[in-house]
């Protein structure tokens, strides 16, 4: 008897759509993936909607409205596995910069009629609201890591996504350290790999788009940056980027805010 194809759903919250686009960017793999699963809900790609429950839900984006804070619970209830994809879903994203300011002021800067806008004070990761089975990092995610995660969950194994720092990847690809050799400030030592250590390979310092690696020593890195002449304000800005609300980066940026 033929086995039922697993049902895949893709959900969007506050985001730029780039991470779900990563799935469509798997030009060589897309039709194979579509053959292995039933794409049950993926509005960016299809009008067709199949009712849940779903075997695997991919969730992109952060929670920023009262309605979305409710909606995520329904998705969790309808999903066997729920995997969050990208910095918005795993850390609140760039829109979490509001978390450090007064959102009312932000609304008045952008919108003529603040009373038309419904938004929460903070942009928060999905894991603050529901249980998440796996978090795939990156701004944007790496499409090969996404295929790995899909493959792992569909085959009942743990995804192989290394937790070590960008530094290790630079060594593996043979990139000379930009911080040691050129004195370019780099977040590589505290940032999780996944991008393939791109920025140093293009002669610039890492800017942390995959978020903090496990067991970071951000204070030590800040001291090294200070030694290179980076100001306190610039240190604050460096940690306050696409993963600003991830705990180790949030603490470090606040330490330099005074």
């Amino acid at each position: 008897m033929a086995l039922r194809k697993p049902k895949l759903a893709v959900w969007k919250f506050s985001s730029c759509d780039g991470c779900q686009l990563s799935l469509l960017d798997c030009e060589d793999e897309l039709l194979a993936v579509a053959g292995a699963v039933e794409i049950a809900n993926f509005p960016e790609a299809s009008r067709a909607v199949v009712k849940g429950p779903y075997d695997l839900s991919l969730v992109e984006g952060s929670i920023t409205t009262p309605h979305d804070a409710e909606r995520i619970h329904g998705i969790r209830r309808a999903s066997k596995f729920l995997v969050t994809i990208g910095a918005c879903a795993t850390a609140g994203g760039i829109q979490a910069l509001r978390n450090f300011k007064d959102v009312k002021e932000f609304i008045s800067i952008v919108y003529a009629r603040p009373d038309y806008i419904e938004t929460l004070k903070k942009s928060t990761p999905i894991t603050d609201h529901v249980f998440v089975d796996f978090e795939l990092r990156g701004c944007p995610i790496n499409k090969y890591q996404l295929v790995e995660v899909l493959s792992a969950f569909l085959n009942g194994r743990k995804p192989n996504t290394p937790p070590h720092s960008v530094c290790v990847e630079c060594k593996l690809r043979g990139t000379v350290c930009v911080m040691v050799a050129q004195g370019t400030p780099c977040l590589g030592p505290v940032t999780q790999v996944g991008c393939g250590a791109l920025c140093p390979a293009y002669a610039r310092g890492c800017y942390g788009c995959f978020g903090p690696k496990e067991t970071t020593n951000t204070a030590s890195l800040s001291a090294w940056w200070s030694g290179l002449g980076v100001s306190e304000r610039d240190l604050m800005r460096a940690f306050r980027g696409f993963n600003a609300y991830a705990e180790p980066f949030r603490r470090e940026s606040e330490a330099h805010e005074k």
Binding site: I94, R98, F106, V110
Partner: peptide
């Protein structure tokens, strides 16, 4: 949802 780029 609004993301407030012009503000931050």
């Amino acid at each position: 949802p609004p993301r407030f780029f012009e503000a931050f």
